[in-house]
């Protein structure tokens, strides 16, 4: 009996376009919900997580000496051959890089150089805003690499776009666990 009633109800609903009305109600409801757009260059920007692979940087040890031993393993493992290292011997008799150049235009940010490095000297940091009008400007030398920002301490938050996050600043965000992208999206 109830099944018959259900079927009649379905037919009545079909005749008066209940399904179309449902769809219209859904889109109307969505129209007044908050949008999920992140207005990146204009208003907000995203902070990378600590595992994010951005621009490379070279590390120094406790004495301020460059950690790199110019073993050229990173240059060997690099799948796109974008690292060029030329070693020299410094006053203390250590092997150090005289030239350490990364062609960012060719780099694919795989992070293999970081894995291959025996001296924990190179890593991929948090900087991701380094687009350029000329690919020649994307060849970064040793001294520039030493000055690049390191790994992010916290990440995932969304901050004002004008904030400069280059110099290892710890940014207080309201979302320490990262921005919840799903918060305005309805899931049933």
């Amino acid at each position: 009996m109830s099944r018959a009633l259900d079927r009649i109800g379905t037919w009545i609903g079909w005749a008066f376009f209940a399904d179309l009305a449902n769809g219209l109600a859904l889109t109307f409801g969505y129209m007044f919900s908050k949008s999920v757009t992140m207005q990146y260059p204009d208003k907000e920007k995203w902070l990378p997580y600590s595992r994010y692979r951005g621009h490379h940087f070279l590390k120094r040890d406790e004495e301020g000496e460059i950690k790199c031993v110019a073993c050229e393993l990173c240059a060997r493992i690099c799948p796109c051959y974008c690292i060029e290292v030329i070693p020299y011997e410094d006053e203390k008799g250590n092997r150090r890089p005289a030239k350490f150049e990364i062609d960012m235009a060719r780099c694919l940010f795989c992070g293999l150089c970081e894995d291959a490095c025996p001296a924990d000297a190179i890593a991929l940091g948090q900087q991701y805003e380094f687009s350029s009008f000329s690919s020649r400007d994307l060849v970064i030398g040793r001294d520039d690499l030493l000055g690049k920002p390191g790994k992010a301490m916290t990440g995932g938050g969304v901050v004002a776009a004008r904030l400069n996050t280059e110099q290892d600043v710890l940014v207080e965000t309201s979302e320490p666990q990262g921005y919840n992208w799903w918060r305005n999206i309805r899931r049933t």
Binding site: Y30, S35, D42
Partner: peptide, 11 residues
Amino acid sequence: GHMQQRMGPMR
């Protein structure tokens, strides 16, 4: 835009 939770033209 707003029906798809975007913002539409903003700039």
